[in-house]
Computed example of a mutant assay.
Amino acid sequence: MGYANGVVNPQRKQPLASIGIISDVQYADIPDGYSFLGVPRYYRHSLLVLQRAVQKWNDQKLKCAINFGDIVDGYCPKDQSLTVVKKVVGEFNRFNGPVHHMIGNHCLYNLPRDKLLPLLNIPGRDSRAYYDFSPVPEYRFVVLDGYEISAIGWPKDHPNTIKAMNFLHERNPNPDKNNPNGLVGRDRRFLMFNGAVGREQIEWLNKVLRDATDSEQRVVVCCHLPLDPQASSNEALLWNHGEVLDVIHRYGCVKACLAGHDHKGGYAVDSYGVHHRILEAALECPPGTDAFGRIDLFDDRLALVGTGRLKSQELVFGR
Rank of each mutant, 00 (worst) to 15 (best):
L111N: 05
R189F: 04
R189S: 06
A65V: 09
G318V: 15
H224F: 06
D299I: 08
G252T: 13
L237C: 07
E235C: 12
G124Y: 10
L117G: 03
A4N: 14
S18Y: 01
L304V: 15
F317A: 04
H263K: 05
N178W: 03
C64K: 03
K61D: 15
L258V: 13
K13Q: 14
P31Q: 02
L120T: 09
S134M: 12
Y251M: 11
V254N: 03
D214T: 14
G146N: 11
W239P: 04
G242K: 13
Y267G: 01
D70P: 03
I162W: 04
G146R: 06
L310D: 02
Y251D: 12
Q230Y: 11
L304K: 05
T307E: 15
L205M: 02
I22M: 00
D187R: 10
R309G: 06
N5S: 14
G195I: 01
H261M: 03
K86L: 05
N174D: 04
G153V: 09
V54H: 06
M1R: 12
I103M: 05
G104I: 10
L168N: 07
P31S: 00
D24E: 00
D29H: 01
P226A: 11
G242L: 13
F167Y: 15
H241N: 15
R218I: 08
K207F: 00
S81M: 03
P15F: 06
H45N: 12
G260H: 06
P118V: 05
E148K: 08
F190R: 00
D157W: 00
R250M: 13
C222H: 05
D145Y: 05
P31L: 02
R199H: 11
N67K: 01
S312K: 12
